[in-house]
Simulated assay, not measured.
Amino acid sequence: MRNLEQECQPVLLFDGVCNLCNSSVKFILKHEKNQNLKFAAIQSEAGEKLLTHYGRDPNQTNSVILISDNQEYTASDAVLKLTQYLKFPYSSGKILMVVPKTIRDFFYKMVAHNRYNWFGKRESCMIPTPQLRKRFLE
C-alpha cells in the first residue's frame, strides 16, 4: 500500500457541505500560483481516511485542515499556511502569523461555529468540473 501522506501531499481538507468552504476552495483554485494542491471534502472517503490517519474523528472535525510537508495545520494556521500557494497579493496574508495564535483562532472558531448560519449549507458535497476532478481526492 502506498504511503498515504506522500500520495496526498499537499492536501486541503474542507467541509464539503459548507458554502463558505466551497467558495474558499473556488477562490484558491482561481488565485493559486500553481496546481500542486489537492483537495478533499472531510465527508469524502479520502477525507475520512486522512483524518483517521492523523488521529481525528471525521464527525468531530470543525476546522479546515491543510496537510503539507508531512505536517497537519488546523484553524488559522491552516488558512495562513495556505497563502503560500496563492499569487500575490494574497500570498502576503502570511504576515498575519505575527498575530498571536490565540487571537487568530478565536476569530477562526467564531466564523467556523457560525458558518452555516451566516453562509448556508448544501445538501451534498460540491462536484468538481471534469477538468478539476483530478485535483479532488475521493
Rank of each mutant, 00 (worst) to 15 (best):
R2E: 14
N3H: 14
N3T: 08
N3V: 04
Q6M: 11
Q6V: 15
Q6H: 11
E7Y: 10
Q9I: 04
P10C: 10
P10N: 09
V11L: 02
V11G: 01
V11S: 01
V11P: 00
F14V: 00
F14Y: 11
F14C: 00
G16T: 10
V17R: 02
V17T: 15
C18K: 03
N19L: 15
L20V: 06
N22V: 08
N22R: 06
N22G: 07
S23M: 11
S24L: 10
V25G: 09
K26T: 10
K26R: 13
F27V: 11
F27N: 08
I28F: 10
I28D: 07
I28H: 06
K30Q: 08
H31P: 04
H31T: 09
K33Q: 15
K33W: 11
Q35A: 14
Q35V: 07
L37I: 12
K38R: 11
K38C: 09
F39G: 00
F39L: 03
A41Y: 01
A41F: 03
Q43S: 05
E45F: 08
G47K: 01
K49C: 07
L50R: 00
L51G: 02
T52K: 14
H53M: 07
H53V: 06
G55K: 12
G55V: 08
G55P: 10
P58A: 04
P58T: 04
P58K: 03
V64Q: 02
V64M: 14
I65W: 00
I67M: 09
I67Y: 02
D69S: 14
D69F: 14
D69I: 06
N70C: 12
N70Y: 15
E72Y: 02
T74I: 14
S76P: 06
D77L: 09
V79M: 08
K81Y: 02
T83E: 13
Y85G: 01
L86Y: 03
F88A: 12
F88I: 08
P89G: 06
P89R: 07
S91A: 12
S92F: 13
G93D: 08
G93Y: 07
K94S: 15
K94M: 09
I95C: 13
L96A: 15
L96F: 14
V98W: 12
V99C: 13
P100R: 05
K101S: 11
K101A: 09
K101E: 07
T102M: 06
T102F: 14
T102Y: 05
R104F: 04
R104G: 02
R104E: 03
D105H: 05
F106I: 03
F107E: 12
F107V: 11
F107G: 12
F107W: 14
K109L: 11
M110R: 13
V111G: 06
A112S: 13
A112K: 01
H113N: 13
R115M: 02
Y116W: 06
W118H: 10
F119S: 10
G120H: 11
S124K: 10
S124N: 11
S124T: 12
M126Y: 14
I127P: 08
I127N: 13
P128L: 08
P128G: 11
T129E: 15
P130E: 10
P130M: 09
Q131L: 09
L132I: 05
R133P: 01
R133G: 05
R133Q: 12
R135C: 08
F136A: 03
E138I: 02
E138H: 07
